[in-house]
Computed example of a mutant assay.
Amino acid sequence: MLRRTVDRRSLLMLAVGTAALLSGCGHPGDTPGPTPGAPAAVPPLPPVPGPHPGPNQVLSHGPTGATDRRIALTVDDGTAPDVVAGYVDFAQRTGIHLTFSPNGTYNRSWAPHAPVLRPLVATGQVQIINHTFTHRDLRKLGDADRRTELERNDDWVVTTFGVTTRPYYRPPFGFHTPAIDALAGELGYTRTVLWDGSFSDSETVTPEFLMGMARKYLQPGVINLGHANHPTILGLFDQVTDLIRQRQLTPVTLDEMFGTSRATG
């Protein structure tokens, strides 16, 4: 096991202190403070838990039922700073629940938005899961490098956002094997997250194509994949929101969909 290089309790205190100084980023429905116009109180982030190793389960679809219309919108990578900024604004402006799967190698895209995202993480509107640090194909790495990819990215998320990514990880490109999943489970990543719907925007696509994918895949129980890599989505947030409303879908994080918590990891 590699030595962890981050003092997580110190990072937690930093996260709580940062959240306490933020203004204008409260979650809709929070109880307002006693002073008119004052920012809504943001709950403190939970202590960062240690790993809970166990068997790994592969997830590609959420629960479904006659009245269950939940959908998980997940967003990978972050190669384009303007697209990351657009997704963060989308979450803050609409209150929509999202799960981000960033790579720490794109810190330049994500770190500027930590002051906005930390309160959204604290209220449960936004979740952050592990997508490895450099987005390399895990099948081509040895076990030591696989561990480093997952642990380094989690350390980065804790440093930047104040929470662990466990127990969820998404393998880059969706490439994984039973051996990779077993190693991930030993590190506390007991849930490998794939998807069964996608905007198919890992490369540049047209608005018409992306909305066609949205109409096809935004359905109850779907884990939908998008990317913060190309600008097409920036002009389509309102159309995606309208489609979700028309279909009476409820966007939720993976924690909300599967009953997990950052407090336990």
Rank of each mutant, 00 (worst) to 15 (best):
M1A: 14
D7H: 10
R9P: 00
S10K: 13
S10F: 12
L12D: 08
L14W: 09
L14Y: 09
A15L: 11
A15G: 14
V16D: 04
G17H: 03
T18H: 11
G24V: 05
C25S: 05
C25M: 08
H27M: 03
P32N: 03
A38E: 12
A41R: 14
V42R: 03
V42D: 05
P43S: 08
P43T: 01
P44L: 08
P46G: 01
G54K: 11
P55V: 08
N56W: 01
S60R: 03
S60T: 06
H61G: 10
P63I: 02
A66F: 06
L73P: 00
V75T: 10
D77C: 05
T79P: 00
P81L: 11
P81I: 10
G86F: 10
V88E: 00
D89T: 15
A91W: 02
T94A: 01
G95I: 05
G95P: 00
F100Y: 02
G104R: 12
N107R: 15
R108P: 04
S109F: 12
A111S: 03
P112I: 02
P112S: 14
A114F: 13
V116M: 09
R118N: 09
L120I: 04
V121Q: 11
Q127M: 06
I129W: 06
H131V: 06
H131W: 09
H131T: 13
T132P: 06
H135M: 11
R136N: 09
D137Y: 12
L138G: 05
L138Y: 10
L141I: 11
G142A: 05
D145F: 08
T148R: 15
T148Q: 14
E149H: 12
W156K: 06
V157Q: 05
V157M: 09
T164K: 04
T165P: 06
P167A: 12
P167Y: 07
P167F: 02
R170N: 09
F173L: 05
G174K: 09
F175Q: 06
F175V: 04
H176M: 07
H176W: 11
T177K: 00
P178C: 09
A182Y: 03
A182M: 01
G185N: 04
E186S: 15
E186F: 00
L187F: 14
G188N: 07
T190V: 04
T190N: 10
R191Y: 12
L194E: 11
D196G: 00
G197V: 02
F199D: 13
E203Y: 11
T206H: 13
Y217L: 09
G221D: 03
L225F: 10
H227N: 13
A228S: 14
L234Y: 00
L234C: 06
D238G: 08
Q239P: 12
T250Y: 13
L254N: 04
E256M: 12
R262Y: 06
A263T: 07
G265T: 11
